[in-house]
């Protein structure tokens, strides 16, 4: 039987959604441990400011049965499945359901996210940002409609010296630019890569949000001429 992992994020239905854990949390933890032991599932559970995050791992059918049960649980609402994928072996095999207080600081959870990060879409990253703000703190919703600039080139000891990074930095150091124009001009290979680079630049306090300041409205979506730029880019194997 193939193994799979499933990560979901949901909202607590308990009326107080402050920093302290809701009383329902312990009931969820207890019932998870009982049900998971019965189905030979393992995983982790955490809570932060009104939201739950839970990982389930085990045989495919058992994980599916459990998530069906959870979706009908009155203690959760707005349940979103962030990750649902087959695995070779579980990341949390020891406990039927381990509770983690500060999941953002937990090494095993961060390793788990690193292992499957490429299978988490933009919406999933946005949701995970609630629990892992240092990792997913700036997401597309933060950039949409924003005019962005860089106050300086990043240190490439802090950032990877990739072609995308060099192009994007050159552009944002030269003039402020609308986020949507950055997507269109394809300095980065994907919108996801663009968002990750912008998030890292933001974390280094180099990204400037210009709001309604004048910005560079030239279109760089297409090569602007057939001159040296395009030929050199060809030479460097970028087209």
């Amino acid at each position: 039987m193939p193994l799979k992992t499933l990560l979901y994020i949901s909202e607590s239905t308990e009326s107080h959604v402050g920093k302290s854990a809701p009383s329902q949390l312990w009931k969820i933890l207890r019932s998870s441990r009982l049900n998971n032991a019965r189905l030979s599932l393992s995983g982790v559970l955490s809570y932060s400011h009104g939201k739950y995050v839970q990982v389930l791992e085990g045989e495919s059918d058992s994980v599916d049965s459990m998530i069906r049960l959870i979706t009908t649980d009155f203690r959760h609402t707005e349940l979103d499945i962030v990750l649902h994928t087959q695995i070779e072996k579980p990341s949390f095999p020891t406990w039927p359901m381990r509770f983690i207080g500060s999941i953002g600081k937990d090494k095993s959870f961060n390793n788990y996210i690193s292992t499957y990060e490429d299978r988490i879409d933009t919406q999933g990253r946005r949701l995970l940002g609630h629990f892992l703000p240092s990792r997913f703190e700036a997401l597309p919703s933060d950039f949409e409609g924003q005019v962005l600039a860089l106050s300086a080139w990043p240190s490439f000891a802090d950032m990877p010296q990739t072609k995308s990074m060099l192009s994007l930095s050159a552009r944002l150091v030269a003039a402020p630019c609308l986020y949507e124009d950055l997507i269109a001009s394809k300095e980065c290979s994907s919108e996801e890569e663009l968002n990750l680079i912008l998030a890292r630049l933001n974390k280094l306090n180099l990204l400037v949000f210009m709001d309604s300041q004048p910005h560079d409205t030239r279109s760089y979506a297409q090569p602007f001429n057939e001159g040296l730029y395009v030929k050199l880019k060809d030479f460097l194997g970028l087209q």
């Binding site: 060099l166 760089y220 602007f224 050199l232 880019k233």
Partner: peptide, 15 residues
């Protein structure tokens, strides 16, 4: 070494 060319090419384009 080519990262130098790439960076200068980008700077020339956008500046």
């Amino acid at each position: 070494a080519e990262s130098i060319l790439h960076a200068l090419n980008a700077i020339n384009r956008f500046h």
